[in-house]
Amino acid sequence: MLSLPATLTQNDASACLEQLTAGLRSEAAQVVVDAARLRSFDTSALAVLLALRRECARAGKHFTVQGLPQRLRDLASLYGVESLLPSA
């Protein structure tokens, strides 16, 4: 399982995505991202999750998210991408 940090903003997004992408290689066919620790974030958190989803698709792996904070769910809905972040 991959985990998001407690803080994920524009300043942290590139490093976070690199770390998650590196971790993706060791994951099985089912990749679960745990977002439960996420407390401080901006729309960059969505960008990171969507980029990771694309990496999973390229690798032939199934992508799901668990523990997505309600505020991030609301942002995903606002941008029309909630269906791209399936729950585990």
Rank of each mutant, 00 (worst) to 15 (best):
S26M: 13
E27L: 02
K61S: 02
E55T: 04
D12C: 14
E18T: 02
N11F: 14
V65N: 03
L2I: 04
P5T: 02
Q66L: 10
Q30A: 12
A57T: 03
D42N: 11
A57E: 15
Q10V: 15
N11Q: 15
N11H: 13
H62K: 12
A59H: 06
A15P: 06
S83K: 15
R73V: 00
V32R: 08
L2K: 04
Q10E: 10
A22W: 00
L2R: 00
A35I: 02
L49Y: 03
V33C: 03
S77H: 15
E82T: 01
R25A: 14
G60K: 00
V33M: 06
A13S: 12
E82M: 07
L85D: 03
L24Q: 05
V65I: 01
S83I: 07
D74Y: 15
L38R: 06
L24T: 06
A35D: 10
N11K: 14
P5F: 15
T43E: 04
V31P: 00
R54W: 11
F63C: 01
E55D: 03
L84E: 07
R25C: 04
R58L: 13
L68K: 08
E82A: 10
L24C: 08
L17Y: 08
D12I: 14
E55M: 10
E27I: 10
L49H: 06
A15E: 12
G23Y: 02
K61Q: 09
L50N: 01
A36M: 06
V81T: 02
L8S: 01
S87T: 15
V81P: 01
G80R: 09
Q30P: 01
D42E: 01
L50C: 05
Y79H: 11
A76W: 10
L50Q: 05
D42M: 10
S83E: 09
G60S: 08
V32G: 05
G23K: 05
A45F: 05
L24D: 00
V81E: 01
